[in-house]
Simulated assay, not measured.
Amino acid sequence: MNFSEVFSHIITFMKKEPIANYRLMVGTDSQVHPSNTLFITGIVIQRVGKGAWACFRKEIVHREMTTLHERISYETSLTEKVAALFTEEKKNELIEIVLPHIYKGATFTIEGHIDIGSGERNRTRVYVNEMVARIESLGMEPKIKPDSIVASSYANRYTK
């Protein structure tokens, strides 16, 4: 699917039930394979407690990307690339769906999921501030493990 088709699916999903809590989430995970590194960027629109619609984009780098910082940074770049497709105009179009219903409890958030954690034993913890700042600069709410479900669960499933 191209981005227009993806966006159309999101619009249709939200319009089916405009009085709901929506989370638009974008996140990337990667897996190093013997001759390449596979990156999967997931786009998920969740109607909290009432289902979700999701799709993903695949990118292959034709080498083993073994340096952790390079891989985490590239994952974040791919998330930024997809998030940038949601222009202010597109975001406003999504917000307009729930806006008439905010007094009935409808909400809409946009999140950038990063496959890193701040735990003491997590090797990626030294990159948390850098990657979180990058996601925040896009106007998205950053999420790290264990809350970065699109990167650490959904996209992860397709990197194997």
Results as ranks from 00 to 15, higher is better:
Q31W: 08
L78P: 05
V48Y: 03
G139I: 14
N156I: 00
E64N: 05
H9R: 13
I11Y: 03
M25K: 12
K16A: 12
I72G: 05
H33C: 10
F7T: 01
I45E: 04
I40H: 02
E80G: 07
H113E: 07
L94M: 10
R47D: 14
S152W: 03
K104R: 13
L85F: 02
T124C: 09
N2S: 03
A52I: 12
M1I: 03
D147R: 13
I102V: 15
K143V: 06
R57K: 13
K91L: 08
F56P: 00
E111H: 15
M1F: 05
G112N: 10
T79E: 05
S153A: 14
D29I: 07
I10C: 12
G27T: 14
R123Y: 11
G42K: 13
Q46D: 13
I19A: 05
L68S: 03
A54T: 08
S4P: 11
D115I: 02
V126A: 10
T12H: 07
V6G: 04
V44H: 07
I149D: 05
A83W: 03
E80H: 08
I110T: 06
E93V: 09
R23T: 00
V132Q: 08
V44F: 02
V126Y: 12
P34H: 11
T79N: 09
L85R: 04
S137W: 13
E93L: 13
I11A: 03
I10F: 06
S148G: 08
E80K: 14
I40Q: 00
G49F: 04
E64A: 11
R71K: 03
S30I: 07
L68M: 02
E75Q: 02
P34S: 14
S77Q: 15
P142T: 10
L99D: 01
R121T: 04
I40V: 11
S118T: 03
T124H: 07
S153M: 09
P18E: 01
Y154P: 11
F3R: 02
E70G: 08
R23Q: 03
S35A: 11
K145G: 02
T66Q: 13
T28P: 14
F3I: 04
E141M: 13
T41H: 05
E130N: 04
